[in-house]
Amino acid sequence: MTEVTLLEEVVADTPHGDRLRGCMQCGSCGGSCPNGAEMDHTPRALFAMLFAGQRDEVLSSNTMWQCVSCYSCTTRCPREIPITDLMYTLKRMAVGAGVARHSDAIALARVFTNMVERYGRSFEFGIATRYLLLHHPVAALKNAGLGLKMYGHGRMSLRPTRIESLDELHAIVDEARTIEFAERNPGGVTW
């Protein structure tokens, strides 16, 4: 049995991901990136590593964690490669492989997604306080002043809003998880 390469996995897990194979290493993506300076590797370099089969180096790179979803690269790429979506895919794979680099971004995403699954809505105050208090107690203090200002301007709610049909939402989310699990474990049991 031949081993599935990371490139194949990434392509399979991204809508229009097959276009990545047409990358011509022009560097437009890196040149467009507002946060390129903070990345270990530009998107172009990361893709070169992906083609070369450097699984561990790619997954442990900070590149995707520095991506802020501005879609500049995606819009400019001459080969119409969905680069931003590839960054999302690489984030998921890095977390899945347990080698993700940017713990803060992961922590924020976790707190956020938990809130959304619990209430059906995002809850900015809950997210900010939970994330900051758990991960950056010092910054929490610095940001407290900002929070108070926001509150004073009627821009912060201390209580979450819940949608009415939470059951429906949970059924959809659970089903999505089941589908993904079944796809990852073909022929396996899906509960």
């Binding site: 897990d13 995707m64 979803s69 979506d85 960054m87 999302y88 895919t89 984030k91 998921r92 977390v95 971004a105 924020l108 995403a109 976790r110 956020f112 997604t113 959304v116 999505a176 998880r177 589908i179 993904e180």
Partner: peptide
């Protein structure tokens, strides 16, 4: 946030 967490 969700895109990098769980695509489906």
């Amino acid at each position: 946030e969700y895109w990098g967490h769980d695509a489906l």
